[in-house]
């Protein structure tokens, strides 16, 4: 009985380690994408940050830029904003609360998940979004890997 008990714990530990390692891999890399039809080939972190913080609505070439956001609480969202804007989720909420309640800004459009971001962006040369690298498709182009 005792051996089985210990083995079970070891099994549980192995399971936890397996998923922990798995989640590290799954965390993967966030990539910033535009449509394959877009003429934009690369962006800097700062250019991307400005578009997603509502400070700029154009790409550097003057073309209009429409950011597609992801739902609050998604890890890809937190990773994108902390890498590109250096703001964590609560800093971001605080930033937007100022803009919303002074009537200066509106939140970006929000897609449900990586898949929907890709779908929206593929059809729209003005759209820009971020997804996990694993969700990349041929009809979108990576313009920044922060």
């Amino acid at each position: 009985m005792r051996t089985i008990f210990i083995n079970r714990n070891i099994f549980k530990l192995a399971l936890v380690l397996f998923f922990a390692a798995g989640s590290l891999v799954a965390r993967g890399e966030v990539v910033v994408i535009v449509s394959a039809k877009s003429t934009i080939t690369s962006l800097t972190e700062e250019q991307t940050a400005r578009i997603f913080l509502g400070k700029n609505d154009k790409f550097p070439n003057g073309q209009s830029a429409i950011p597609i956001d992801q739902p609050e609480g998604e890890s890809v969202r937190d990773e994108f904003y902390s890498k590109v804007t250096h703001k964590n989720a609560s800093q971001l909420a605080s930033y937007w609360s100022k803009l919303i309640f002074t009537g200066e800004g509106r939140l970006s459009k929000i897609a449900e998940d990586d898949k929907e971001v890709v779908k929206e962006i593929a059809n729209n040369p003005n759209a820009i979004g971020y997804i996990d690298k694993s969700a990349l498709k041929k009809n979108v182009r990576v313009v920044l890997t922060p």
Partner: peptide
Amino acid sequence: PQLTLPDKGGLTNQAQTKTTSL
């Protein structure tokens, strides 16, 4: 000219015609 770029093909129009989710 940069400011008057029409939103043609922009998501605002697309979202209304192709998908309602956004």
